[in-house]
Design a protein around this nucleic acid. Sequence first.
DNA 1: CCCGTATATTACCCACGGGTAAGAAATAGT
DNA 2: ACTATTTCTTACCCGTGGGTAATATACGGG
Lengths: 254, 254
Amino acid sequence: MDARSPTSSRQSPWLPFESRRRARDEKREAVLRMAVQLFLEQGYHRTTLNDVAERLNITKPALYNYFRGKDEILFECWAIGNERVDDCITGIASGGGTGLAKLRKLIVSYAEVMTTDYGKSLVRFDVRDLTEHNRRIVNTAKRKIDRAFRDYIAEGIADGTIKPCDPKLSAFAIAGSLNWIGHWFHPGGPMAAQAIAEEFAIRLTEGIATTSTRKKAGKPPRKTKTSREDRSEHHPRTAARAAGQSQRARNRLR
Amino acid sequence: MDARSPTSSRQSPWLPFESRRRARDEKREAVLRMAVQLFLEQGYHRTTLNDVAERLNITKPALYNYFRGKDEILFECWAIGNERVDDCITGIASGGGTGLAKLRKLIVSYAEVMTTDYGKSLVRFDVRDLTEHNRRIVNTAKRKIDRAFRDYIAEGIADGTIKPCDPKLSAFAIAGSLNWIGHWFHPGGPMAAQAIAEEFAIRLTEGIATTSTRKKAGKPPRKTKTSREDRSEHHPRTAARAAGQSQRARNRLR
DNA sequence: CCCGTATATTACCCACGGGTAAGAAATAGT
DNA sequence: ACTATTTCTTACCCGTGGGTAATATACGGG
């Protein structure tokens, strides 16, 4: 059965009787990688902590060395995805450009995140499975993302690059299309993540942009796909990432 | 607490010590109305059959007179929503019009369904909570809906009312926006369901339509349609409805 | 080599909730 | 009014799975 499909990057750090001295954080992340994968594959409620532990060659109580409980694992998966979106937003906010340009950038980045496991967790996980405290954090973050879409649209209307429209409704329409990616996209499919992202950036803005954005004919479809290590949550660890969200930084009090 | 908010149409037919002789089907539908409401409000897994029964002034085992189990209740909720979408599709297919016109009609109808409880169940419920058999039915129906979107787009490209584009990707983009309605729409909000539906029909097609669809100023928003009894799953029982799906017709074998 | 700490295991607890059995209460038919 | 049938209730079963306690094993430092 299953024969250890090569999908999920490298193996678990707990190879049965082998060097088991990985750094704590690496193991923690390995748990999250496996958990998000199983949560997406089977659904949160159908995934037991035994499932997660078993696939990592450990037992359930060992997980409690790294997490307070199941809901915290869920939250941390979500937090990683949110961190990535948040990086996109701050990156776009720092750079200049018209409202339309910013909106397109956001669409591309957001769409790409949506094709990753952690990105999917932003829309596939149910906020009601979290504690009251974490649920509030999630809702705040969601409002921030929504605000980014609306602000860029409003900015575009103000600077003339976007036709007058209701920013709220347009943001819902765009975000809906993008979030839906997290439901249908599967890495093995015919379209590469990056190609989808760029296609959506055009498609979703060509209705509201003032300048006609008919695809420049000369552009060859060579986009090289997501290139190396295409699937499996690459976790770039770019410098200056630590400034992301305030929560989640502390490596568990212990 | 809650004070019996006026959202959910009329009360349960099992008022504690009152005429309890409602027809079987009415009670069955009352169960479904309450169930879909609770499933949406609390989530399927957090809603117990006791919750459903209690709010109907009965006890859990009484539900088993009408349904085989929890997952069947879920399925029937989904089936009602699907029936409505299916009616839209067959209605559009029977009438004529360009590809673009059909697509717009579908968007309007689908969006309106998405603002109802049963419509939301199409996108908020998890297929994996169903039995293998019912899951197959759901997936088949979903493919049919997807096909309708793609076909109308392809038709529009063929008849020149829609710009050349990838029907699959465009269908995903449009369906994503519409499905998302089922996540954010709440009947108490500032926008009426019908207004949203018509706005989306314009917004989602203005990018791919060949004819400029800038909102014709003269069009008064009188469309009547869903008009009276706007919320709360009115269940029109229109004639010739029974021909809908083959499944679900039989009132449980018993 | 010994001890303290971190890490993992085995063996358990128990609340929750879907589902069932047996029988009471209402209903319909004649 | 008596019976057959449907409908509903009380009382229970039990599998599941999150979480914990006690303990064993590995590891690092002196």
